[in-house]
Write a protein that binds this DNA or RNA. Structure first.
Length: 581
DNA sequence: GCCGTTTTCGGCCCGACTGTTTTCAGTCG
């Protein structure tokens, strides 16, 4: 965790402690500051070094008091105010706030009356029936706590998007069948296409809300109904994920979709902006306030809301309050890459190494998927577990590719297979195939698959050496992370991006949905530096071209335009670009 | 505790649902 993140975590906890003490407004100030710190590019230590307290105060949401606390943390690695709050209310907030239904006020009461400090204490007290007698609690709250604890012990809190999406789409089509339903839309972080999601949000337009709620709460993978009102319900699915449902009227649909898509930070920023303009934004619409009257001015669709606020429409993938609002207000939002824009795929594995299908089968699948070209990039010999290719086999594979291309031409299939490799980068940064072979290939991808735990300096040097090889076109999955499994290896990403710029090396956005590597933050940096990227499926099977959409989503969240991505270009232009190096 | 194109003081995002109440506090998104 970096320094900004650490301070942000402390500020979040301070906010929680202050909420427990029922202090108004301050918690929000600390939360806001924490959010800003999390989104800050530059390390606060650096800012402080350069400009002292005054520079810290320039950060939005940070005033004198918080600037001093940040200074204190930089100097002493501690914040006294936070330590005192902890002493005063010695509860394990990190644990207790994960319990669904328990907020700061309840945690405080539980500590005051029963000295409950952690989940263990909580469970004991609930099992012994001690909670039901506390003021403000009852039998039902006690049961609720026990149920939450049960779920907590076996559930993880975030899920990979590609695993969740098909299941939620199934729920969507179930709801579409309900009588009176006009429209069903998936909102929330799924609509924003985050790489992992915490829950799902579904929005419905229906003339008969009760029917929808009834069907929704009785779906067969629902294990718990958290709430069910007349326009809103929440359930938990068998694999531990919460799904929220909201039924709205047609004229509020845009406002509701906007509200339900989030992110929360984006919503709050929009509402604050509305207030400044004498308007009010909620899930029912945008209203003009004047002399005790509210007049509906927009809300049927999202576009008219943004328009009324004087902004360009903001794509869901950009709604994180990380600068998109200012850009939209100044009409300077980039036109980000679209889901239909890719013409090629530059990383595809076949049964020559660790893929499942032949070159021809993969090519035909890509062709049917709508692509114009793919590069075959099987592993190289160093990766023996993947049956990597040596020089002899790769030469043979090149011949095979020529044959299939000729065959396609005869059959009138307008599709090109490029000769490529996913060449292993060895420990010292040299490549697993000799230059005389690499020269013959049209797309040379290079990637790290071994020695993940070299020091940051060594790993960076290793990758830079590979980029300096004039034959290397693309660095595949540049940081090596596997979501929820493996951390990225240590890397000085800024130096890598600078080198990519200098050497005209492309950095890949690997679209394989548990990689999504580069991440959105690094994509942003590449865009800013003018480093080109490719979006590749890393397909090991025929159906994996579907994964390209997750890579495109990732690129969109990184503000990438068509001009930033080389495989949106027609084949000749793309190849010409690679030859420039 | 922060912030200012109506404000250096007085605001601070906003509404649904639940459970424990008997009019509302707490939680959530």
């Amino acid at each position: 965790m970096n320094e900004n993140q650490k301070i942000a975590e402390i500020f979040y906890e301070i906010a929680e402690y202050l909420s427990m003490k029922n202090i108004p407004f301050k918690p929000r100030a600390y939360e806001k500051a924490a959010e800003v710190l999390e989104g800050l590019e530059e390390n606060v230590s650096l800012i402080y070094e350069k400009g002292g307290i005054a520079a810290l105060e320039k950060i939005p949401g940070i005033g004198l008091s918080l600037a001093q606390k940040i200074e204190e943390f930089i100097k002493t690695k501690k914040i006294k105010y936070y330590e005192e709050l902890k002493k005063e209310l010695p509860v394990n907030l990190e644990e207790l706030r994960k319990v669904e239904g328990l907020g700061p006020q309840s945690i405080k009461k539980l500590y005051d009356y029963l000295k409950i400090k952690n989940i263990n204490d909580l469970k004991k007290a609930a099992l012994n029936g001690k909670i039901r007698n506390l003021p403000g609690f009852g039998k039902k709250s006690e049961e609720k706590i026990l149920k939450s604890l049960e779920f907590l012990s076996k559930s993880q809190n975030r899920f990979l998007l590609y695993k969740v999406l098909p299941q939620i789409e199934e729920i969507k089509s179930e709801l579409e069948k309900v009588r009176g339903v006009k429209k069903v839309v998936i909102a929330g972080s799924i609509r924003r296409m985050k790489e992992t999601v915490g829950d799902a949000d579904i929005l419905v337009i229906s003339s008969q809300p009760q029917n929808v709620i009834e069907r929704f709460t009785k779906l067969n993978n629902v294990v718990k109904v958290t709430s069910a009102g007349s326009t809103k319900a929440a359930v938990k699915l068998n694999f531990g994920m919460n799904v929220d449902l909201r039924i709205v009227e047609e004229k509020s649909f845009g406002a509701a979709l906007n509200y339900f898509t989030g992110s929360k930070a984006h919503n709050i920023a929009l509402r604050e902006l509305s207030i400044k303009k004498g308007l009010k934004l909620n899930e029912y619409g945008l209203f003009k306030i004047s002399a005790n009257q509210e007049k509906f001015v927009a809300g049927e669709n999202e576009e008219e809301i943004y328009q009324y606020l004087g902004m360009d429409y903001i794509e869901p993938e950009l709604r994180e309050n990380t600068g998109e609002i200012e850009l939209a207000l100044n009409h300077r939002l980039p036109k980000i890459i679209g889901y239909q824009d890719l013409l090629g795929d530059l990383q595809v594995q076949t049964n020559w190494s660790d893929g499942t299908f032949s070159i021809e089968e993969m090519a035909l699948s890509a062709y049917r998927f709508g692509l114009k070209y793919i590069a075959i990039t099987d592993h190289t010999k160093n990766l023996s577990v993947a049956n990597g290719l040596d020089e002899k086999r790769i030469l043979k594979q090149m011949e095979e590719i020529d044959k299939i291309n000729t065959k396609f031409k005869k059959q009138g299939i307008n599709f090109t297979i490029l000769k490529g490799t996913e060449c292993d980068i060895l420990k010292d940064g040299s490549l697993d195939l000799p230059d005389k072979i690499l020269e013959k290939l049209e797309v040379v991808g290079a990637a790290i698959h071994t020695y993940f735990n070299l020091s940051k300096t060594e790993q960076t040097k290793r990758l830079i050496k590979a980029m300096q090889n004039p034959n290397v076109d693309i660095i595949f999955h540049p940081t090596g992370r596997i979501l929820q499994k493996r951390e990225a290896y240590e890397l000085d990403i800024d130096e890598i991006i600078q080198t990519a710029k200098k050497t005209k090396t492309v950095l890949e956005i690997d679209a394989y949905p548990d990689r999504l590597d580069l991440n959105d933050e690094y994509i942003k940096k590449c865009v800013e530096c003018g480093v080109k990227m490719s979006i590749d499926s890393d397909a090991h099977s025929k159906e994996h071209f579907e994964y390209l959409k997750y890579g495109i989503a990732q690129a969109r969240r990184g503000f990438a335009k068509k001009t930033d991505i080389i495989n949106v270009w027609p084949l000749s232009k793309m190849l010409k670009f690679l030859k420039q190096k």
